[in-house]
């Protein structure tokens, strides 16, 4: 945990609720991005993000400081997500992924054809990602998009290190297979 975070947390616990706002502002984008990829829905991600922050605020006194605040926050967000998914018992909608990927920002400096192809690739990856199970998608997002190391992933997902490695590999292979299938059905020219 960075010193700044610990200071802010101490201030919050000391009664300065405004200090928590700084923590929120500091991590909201990062958390939001991850949650969008995990949940596949921007609105849901925003919802989850808010709830995660709220819970973090309420439960802050239980935070021991053994891990980074962000890791702890992320764990809350993930638990929220999993909890809701379990209740809903609904699979990720591929359409949602398409909707999201349809509004992807595109890289500048590319030719229009390249952009188009790139957008299609991104869309396909996004859709394929959406077909994975929650556990596989989460671990992939944490590793590839969030850039977490295995240790952090294990901490967030509360998994043993070995499981992280095997699950990550499994998730990658599943995603690869899924993309293969999609490319065979709708090849990108």
């Amino acid at each position: 945990m960075t010193r700044e975070d610990s200071q802010l947390i101490d201030e919050v616990l000391g009664g300065d609720a405004q200090a928590f706002n700084e923590l929120v502002r500091k991590y909201q984008n990062r958390l939001y991005n991850t949650l969008v990829h995990v949940s596949g829905d921007r609105d849901a991600a925003e919802d989850l993000m808010q709830d995660a922050f709220v819970q973090a605020f309420v439960m802050l006194k239980t935070f021991k400081g053994n891990s980074a605040f962000y890791t702890w926050l992320y764990r809350i967000a993930f638990n929220l997500y999993i909890s809701r998914k379990r209740r809903q018992r609904k699979e990720f909608s591929i359409e949602q992924g398409r909707v999201i990927s349809g509004t992807e920002p595109m890289d500048d400096g590319e030719m229009p054809d390249d952009r188009l192809m790139r957008a299609e690739q991104v869309e396909q990856v996004h859709v394929a990602l959406g077909t994975l199970s929650d556990e596989h998608r989460s671990i992939l997002v944490l590793r590839e998009i969030e850039g977490c190391c295995y240790e952090t992933i294990a901490e967030i997902l509360e998994l043993p290190g070995g499981t992280v490695r095997s699950r990550l590999h499994r998730a990658r292979k599943l995603l690869r297979d899924q993309l293969h299938e999609m490319l065979q059905e709708n090849p990108i020219e």
Binding site: A17, Q18, F20, N21, E22, V24, R25, Q28, N29, Y32, N33, V36, H37, R42, A45, E46, M49, Q50, F53, V54, F57, E104, P105, V122, V125, H126, L129, L140, E144, I145, G147, L175
Partner: peptide
Amino acid sequence: LQSMPKYEFEGDVSERVQ
């Protein structure tokens, strides 16, 4: 996957959260 676009949250949820 690493080149997937980054989503930024527009706005500030801190007040609402609080």
